[in-house]
Design a protein around this nucleic acid. Structure first.
Lengths: 327, 327
DNA sequence: CTGTTAGCGCGTTCAC
DNA sequence: GTGAACGCGCTAACAG
């Protein structure tokens, strides 16, 4: 079923049908009604594919996420996709995985679809391979980067100041009387590097020892292993900051099973203030990295830039500590 | 940049470029090389939009989920999307929300994109409005339904036998000596109705009292409220089956804070065997509804049906009880 | 083995 | 107000 079929059935030309469907001016209300009638009867939907080809404009935006099952990222993807839907945009949500080649491949794929905007979620995309791919495949559409930065003329970004957040967390625990404060990191991402930098700066300013457990697996089990390793290496630890809430939850489980009391013996802080904070016992205090605000900013920027000439906005948000029962 | 530009630069015709890009036979290796060279230099990607229009075939599949943030469903969406990606298919993942009108609207939207296959995830889509929409908008492409059924010639389904699973759970708790076994339900979905039916059947067969807390909110907080209500109405309860793990986690939190011991005083069983089972203390036993197998089956069915004439397969999976520390 | 031609289903001038 | 004709970028049928 095409607009030609509708045209024939309504006794008009295809262009008239097209005008009606796009609410164009200058159609007599009689013929408009007649055409609408046929469209309704036939349950007709015009081909978006053909429209895209004709208008050079696709009404779909691309969203890149390393792994959609990851809670930190899915909330952002959800929010952005949901807000675009009523505006007539569908979202192509792609899992890139953690390999740089597949990120590039995904960008290439999206570019063949002629998306009208692109969202990158997660600092993992902050690398030169992705930068090159953006430059060669999607240089003519607006791109927004949630929690990462890249120096491209058509790229805007919204980031949280993770370094300050982690530094604040150290000072916060210090204020609670903790003097042996460790940091458990997972992947080596730009965002996590900022957290580590903030941690190092704060402990050195306070004259504390820097204790870092790097490359912890991003799961509750990874947190267990990290906690075990930490207790072995630093039995006197009395405060731990984890780069991810879920890892913190796993770490807590292990510490409790080892007989440590939380927060009496060891204070715990997670990062991201995610939904799992309220699932643990005791409930997990966390560094709120303002993910919802980041996503909202990405949406706002992209919305205003689509169809316009690309701008280059950069906004950042301050982290906040949300205290529950582990500190 | 189009294939015409490439053609001109390589000194050949557009169809030759098209043939090269689609790995067609019957091209001299000399011209193939020359064309490839230009394509590489220009970083050229052919427009998928134009290809779709020309071939009447879109290489994108649609995935419908009520809410992508919901853990039960995202795993399935992830698995299906990831397996289709290497086959050259992108996935349009849409959040429909819980309103029937918006589900219909999403199906309509997908149909304008000429998707080549559709996946429905969650029994919430098992209703007549969706059935009508499928019939009028996507009657010519294969549809697979994860955990739901609908009587359409082009629809296949993979479901878990939730009724048997819940009945087994009742008998399982009975075997552990429990005699006052309650069921906490959340939304009124076909799947949950099956669970309730299984619960009712089992308790009546065992001569137990039927205790149901309906319409619990789908969150940890909802679980807390439900537990509170339940303890008030039935102080002697010694076994609870929750329709969702997360709700069970919330319920446990409340019960523990009320001084109940788990599992000594009350045994707890969640449903779905999701990742939050290992986050709670004690770790949550759960009815495994075989979500990964369901998704895998959906993928397999859809893959074989795309491009073929639509079939109509129906597979079902047996639930299993995964015991941890709450039973 | 390669080029020419004719659609795919829309939106958009430009006449009438 | 409305219709005819063309173009969007690609594939496929037909020639040569």
């Amino acid at each position: 079923m095409t607009i030609y079929d509708i045209a024939r059935m309504a006794g008009v030309s295809a262009s008239t049908v097209s005008r009606v469907m796009n609410n164009r001016e200058g159609i007599s209300s009689r013929t408009r009604e007649r055409v609408m009638e046929v469209i309704r009867n036939e349950n007709f939907c015009a081909s978006d594919t053909a429209r895209s080809l004709s208008t050079q404009y696709s009404s779909t935006i691309g969203i890149l996420v390393a792994d959609i099952r990851n809670q930190h990222h899915i909330e952002g993807a959800y929010m952005i996709a949901q807000r675009f839907l009523p505006l007539g945009y569908c979202s192509l949500l792609l899992n890139t995985g953690y390999e740089k080649e597949s990120m590039v491949e995904c960008i290439r794929t999206l570019s063949t679809r002629r998306i009208s905007g692109l969202v990158l979620i997660g600092s993992i995309f902050q690398n030169s391979e992705v930068e090159e791919a953006l430059k060669s495949f999607v240089c003519d559409i607006p791109v927004v980067f949630q929690n990462g930065e890249l120096d491209l003329p058509n790229l805007s970004s919204a980031v949280s100041r993770d370094d300050e957040g982690t530094a604040d967390a150290v000072r916060f625990l210090y204020g609670k009387g903790r003097r042996t404060i460790a940091f458990v990191n997972n992947n080596d991402t730009p965002s996590n590097r900022k957290k580590m930098a903030g941690y190092r700066k704060a402990v050195s300013q306070l004259g504390l020892k820097s204790i870092i457990i790097p490359e912890c697996e991003d799961s509750a089990e990874g947190g267990e292993k990290a906690a075990e390793k930490l207790i072995e290496a630093e039995p006197g630890v009395d405060g731990i900051i984890f780069s991810v809430d879920l890892i913190a939850a796993g770490g807590m489980r292990k510490l409790l099973s080892l007989g440590r009391r939380i927060p009496e013996d060891i204070a715990i802080l997670g990062t991201d203030n995610s939904s799992c904070c309220t699932l643990t016992t005791p409930m997990l205090s966390s560094i709120d990295t303002r993910l919802p605000e980041l996503s909202a900013a990405c949406f706002d920027i992209l919305k205003t830039e689509i169809g316009q000439k690309q701008g280059r906005k950069n906004v950042s948000f301050e982290c906040r500590i949300v205290e529950r029962q582990t500190t």
